[in-house]
Simulated scan of single mutants.
Amino acid sequence: MIHTIENDYLRVSVDDHGAELCSIFDKVHNREVIWQADPAYWKRHAPVLFPNVGRHFEDHYRINGVEYPSSQHGFARDSEFTCVDMTADSITHRLKSSDATRENYPYDFELKIKHVLEKNQVSVCWEVISLNDETMYFTIGGHPAFNVPAGGIGSQEQYHLTFDGRDSLSYLLIDISSGTAVADKAYTLELENGSCLIDAHMFDKDALIFDDQIEKAGIAFPDGTPYVELICHGFPSFGIWSVPGSPFVCLEPWMGRCDDFGFKGELPEKKYINTLDKDEIFTASYEIKIY
């Protein structure tokens, strides 16, 4: 079931399946902002990545010597959530651990996803509750895809990625065969006045991974005016991705990310891992601002 809230600026819809943000319709400019999941390119809109962002090396991980299988981006995006609260400006979903989730993730948890609408902005709020006696480990991330070009304005290669006040950024690429980060070779994204054009070949090698640099990133129209901005204070990692030749771009705020290539340590040793002790609550949120 899809739930919808709206105000004078935006109409926002969220699906029970994956608690996935499936539409931000800009009422002011009469255009859809979120990618509408054309399976010819990519069948999702804005999946929630949990309990892992990206892939583990060789698609499994270890806890206390026990090996567990894992799939890319975890199971939340393909799970049925329950809508537990809805107000005029918010929609809250919940996912609880089950026998199915325990097959490849040995922890008991509650995951709440809340979407809040305020003027021309949507906040995506995560709450993870541990129901375990031992420490729980996880990563969680956002993966919203935005229509680029927007509303028939220009071509994708005329749009800009924007990063406030930066002259350049350092990024990693992904080893395609394993889906993990090649951490020993960094590349430089050169910026002019904090922005760069979206190059047609930018995503030929999958996502660009930025560690410890980005708390705000956006997409601007060909004339330089802002289109959409994503604010994610306190997030250690950030991904930018698209399928080459497709009319969307993803801005992805991550609390943790894929393994580094060759990582064979235990899950508690993983870079950027999040931890929760019994009855602890993890919270994080990011904002999508539409111009």
Rank of each mutant, 00 (worst) to 15 (best):
T162F: 08
E58M: 13
V228C: 07
A220N: 04
C250W: 00
L276E: 02
N7E: 03
F238E: 00
R44G: 15
A284S: 10
M255P: 00
V243F: 02
P149R: 07
K289G: 01
T180R: 02
C22Q: 10
T283C: 07
W126G: 00
A37T: 09
E134R: 14
P47E: 03
A181H: 01
Y291H: 14
W241H: 01
V66R: 08
S168E: 11
A37K: 07
K185Q: 15
W42A: 00
P236S: 10
A183W: 12
A150P: 07
I209V: 14
D211T: 11
V48N: 07
E58A: 14
G179K: 03
A183P: 07
R62Q: 15
P106Q: 00
H56D: 04
P253L: 05
V182R: 11
D85L: 09
P47H: 05
V116P: 03
I281H: 03
K270L: 07
L191Y: 05
L189V: 05
I2R: 08
G262N: 02
R62G: 12
R11F: 04
I288G: 00
A46N: 08
V148A: 07
T139S: 11
G141N: 05
I2Q: 08
T225R: 13
E110R: 02
D59H: 15
V128W: 09
G141T: 01
Y105T: 08
F235Q: 02
D133N: 13
H3C: 09
S237Y: 01
P69T: 10
G239W: 01
I214H: 04
H233A: 15
G165M: 04
F25T: 01
G141H: 01
V249F: 06
V12W: 03
S90Y: 05
I140S: 02
I209W: 04
D133F: 03
I273M: 12
G218A: 05
F81L: 02
D8K: 14
A220S: 07
G154Y: 10
G141D: 03
R44P: 11
S168L: 10
K96T: 12
V33W: 04
H233P: 00
E266V: 13
